[in-house]
Design a protein around this nucleic acid. Structure first.
Lengths: 117, 117
DNA sequence: CATATCCATGGATATCTGTCGACTCAATCG
DNA sequence: CGATTGAGTCGACAGATATCCATGGATATG
């Protein structure tokens, strides 16, 4: 790894004293962290991440039956993954006749993307 | 939601025929999707995401005992979260005496960040 | 109208995850 | 050396997750 760190030296605290006060605090608010973590969690599966990748570029063009053969999972399992993405607010779907068309909600990934940057 | 989609019309397939061929394929390779999903999964918890946020800006300045009071979790649980981040290749640590200093590995988040963009 | 298709839902099950308390181990201090 | 501290590991356990099969509901086709 070999990274150049300047370690802030510490001294062992005297007997019985409470631990050192935290000197740093997160920049992200708790609610913001929870929102972003929820998005990240939904993306934390290869199938779902790939789904988002496909849907981002082919909104309105793909029905679920065309997504199934892209993966080694059953159709109900794919439906469950899509539901997870829906619940996380990343995608939504539009039904037309027998078919369901999914698309990525614009800006759904923006907050996380900006934080990562 | 109200997004402007142009849906590609489909026709029900004839009896007994195999499902429509997929017309789209993911742009991400399977291995790339797995790498990014692993990173996203590690970030998919508010505690870990906040840890990364803190460590990104205070590398080498914070020991674990200072991180604990930032959250409502026990020290072993925090250690466990740090291990998850280590296993995902997001952070690493340097031990000096009694203290362990964590830091975010440069570029660990780059691939996911670029994909999200 | 009967039947087949697309997709979602529900139940079952094995595995993974987050959390804790108890413990271990190395390093420090007295 | 003996006691204490920082931090990682272990075992346990409740809750979440991924997956399947079977089913159900709506819609299209003939």
């Amino acid at each position: 790894m070999a990274i150049d760190l300047e370690l802030t030296p510490k001294t062992k605290r005297p007997n019985g004293e409470p631990c050192c006060e935290p000197v740093v605090y997160p920049d992200v608010e708790r609610a913001q962290a929870e929102r972003m973590a929820q998005i990240a969690k939904a993306l934390g599966d290869p199938v779902r991440l790939t789904l988002v990748d496909v849907l981002r570029k082919h909104a309105g063009k793909v029905c679920v039956c065309e997504l199934v053969p892209l993966f080694d999972i059953s159709q109900p399992t794919l439906s469950h993954h899509l539901k997870k993405l829906r619940d996380a607010g990343i995608v939504d779907s539009e039904r037309q006749g027998l078919w369901a068309y999914y698309y990525v909600i614009p800006d759904a990934l923006e907050e996380l993307s900006a934080w990562l940057r």
